[in-house]
Design a protein around this nucleic acid. Structure first.
Lengths: 338, 338
DNA sequence: CCGCTTTACGAAACCGCTTTACTAGACTGC
DNA sequence: GCAGTCTAGTAAAGCGGTTTCGTAAAGCGG
């Protein structure tokens, strides 16, 4: 491969000149510039990025830490980040942490070793302070989707509270009064926000929230399945369930199917995330759609600002949207029993 | 950050010695080794990978080119590759090509500039020779999932022909005789293999394949939707449809729903890929499951062999599996009409 | 105690680029 | 015609490792 020296030799200038010319740090007379251009073309010269990186200390690469890129939500997010990064000349290193603290730490360290210029971090396990401490030591970090308490870096979130409120409101508007709620892992900011949105909607409508109709602790379908079966065992089962993620709703629907309760005629269901393909489920799921694309792009843009020495907004909240499909119907009249 | 010189100074040896010691290229007396270890620990020394890479020319990174990492199939594959790479100390650069030739070429060039040690390539657009030419120039390339004619590099595929045969056979065993087929883009190896499997099963069973019951040209759901509606317009519509990807089957199912044809009582359907969540569809889809995890891992292993100077098998074919769910039933008796 | 091998390590070149500091020569104004 | 300014570059020192070649000193056999 041709080096900058070859180009310099061919164009009859010094490597310094070539370097500065390529990087727009010098204005050259047209004739000289033309000679350099010609030499570059002739030799098919491409700067050795390894050398450039060692020299400048910048890598034009960023790290993207996600819980699990196999999941559609994170895959889509990663894709958006990648696309936006690409458009700015950045490459991304991805890592999946499997929601495991050790893997999160390992990822962070590995990315540090790789000299990424910055970091976009997503987590969905509550932090005990370890992550916060580690991230506090890094420069150029942006948090998206989920908070890590105690770190003061730019954050890009979605309107979790408003989304949950809208979902609950949608069920209330359909006539439901006994609405159950299944949340995610304790201690997560987004989970608490969604819970708050649910409670606010119920309170505003003057509806009681029954202890036995609220569950939480995990996003896993299995967990939701069990919670749903428990709901059905209560004295007066709910007529609607709001699951704070589509994975939860998948568990809910499976449990209901198993118990012979049909959706939406006997039980209405709303989810959160609007996972792809859920419109093909039986029934197609009503859900809160998150602006995944925007989340990814704005996440990168915040990081890019940081890298450019600007100060991005410390908190961005992206709007969500209720997508109505067929998993919600008015409750059956009391007295009737399925 | 501490450099190798700092460590050398602290341990009272030369940088050369530290370097060789770290890289296991020298045996040192216990006392010296201990001094170096102590210095490394004390200074929290971590080798600067940028410098090491410039020096050695190796990056311990590989490129992974996929059509679209948002799609579950590729996301899962990418995840498997990443996991396996990680376990061997390699990082991966991903890029999504959106099945676009220009983006494929751009990715290949970008990865080259990034000095990746090797490349795992996936494509799902037929090549006109451009890709083959470009890849021919690179060392350490492995093809997975789909062939690019004219390049002689290790390839890891799945048993497309056998899978399609099994899917078709499954419909035949259920009693179907008029089976329609929807294939993917023309010119793709896997598509042709699947078509061959379908035709072989039909031939072995002594069944006619009607021209008007065979479509192909795209993996898109829209395409499949139209093809399905066309099938329904034929004089004697098929009683079963084999779609050579789950995306196709999604289109098929949508079209059938739209046309009021119920699955599986009026029309049986089998897909290929076994996408996640299709078991929650209405009805749950019977499909051919590809060993995605194995595809990813073996793909990386082949590349790793190449990088280690060994000669991996030039062609690996991974078995597939029929997953029976509820989209297949015996055909209704002739004469009855839905 | 001399020549040879082995042990233990080091000097310096190199990877290919960037960047700071500097200069030769042309021009400009007085 | 000479100081001062501009133009058009350049030399050389990094960046932080790896690697080739080499050597001083210790050990050893005869």
């Amino acid at each position: 491969m041709a080096t900058i020296h070859d180009v310099a030799f061919d164009a009859n200038v010094s490597p310094t000149t070539v370097s500065r010319y390529i990087n727009n740090r010098i204005e050259l007379p047209a004739a000289t510039a033309a000679r350099i251009d010609a030499a570059i073309a002739k030799l098919d010269y491409r700067p050795n990025l390894l050398a450039r990186r060692l020299s400048t200390g910048r890598t034009e690469a960023i790290g993207l830490v996600t819980p699990e890129i196999r999941e559609p939500f994170f895959a889509e997010l990663a894709s958006a980040v990648e696309d936006e990064a690409d458009r700015h000349g950045y490459t991304i290193f991805m890592s999946s942490t499997r929601s495991d603290r050790q893997r999160e730490i390992a990822s962070l360290n590995r990315l540090h070793d790789r000299h990424v210029d910055g970091l976009i971090m997503m987590t969905n396990t509550p932090d005990d302070g370890t992550l916060a401490a580690l991230i506090g030591k890094r420069r150029n970090v942006v948090l998206i989707d989920e908070d890590i308490p105690g770190v003061s870096v730019p954050r890009v979130f979605v309107e979790n509270e408003l989304g949950a409120h809208a979902a609950t409101r949608h069920l209330i508007d359909a006539g439901h009064e006994r609405i159950a709620y299944i949340g995610g892992p304790k201690g997560l900011y987004s989970v608490e926000q969604r819970r708050a949105g649910f409670l606010r909607a119920m309170k505003e409508a003057g509806l009681k929230v029954r202890k036995e109709h609220v569950a939480g602790g995990s996003f896993a379908s299995d967990f939701a399945r069990r919670a749903t079966l428990d709901f059905l065992q209560t004295r007066t089962p709910p007529t609607a369930i709001f699951g704070s993620s589509d994975y939860i709703v998948i568990g809910v629907v499976q449990a209901l199917k198993q118990a012979g309760v049909s959706v939406p005629s006997h039980m209405s269901v709303v989810g959160f995330d609007d996972m792809p393909l859920t419109e093909l489920f039986n029934p197609p799921l009503t859900s809160i759609r998150q602006p995944i694309e925007a989340l990814g792009r704005q996440g990168f843009q915040a990081l890019f600002s940081l890298l450019s020495g600007e100060q991005p907004p410390m908190l961005t909240m992206l709007p969500v949207q209720l997508i109505e499909r067929e998993s919600v119907a008015p409750p059956r009249k009391e007295g009737f029993d399925g």
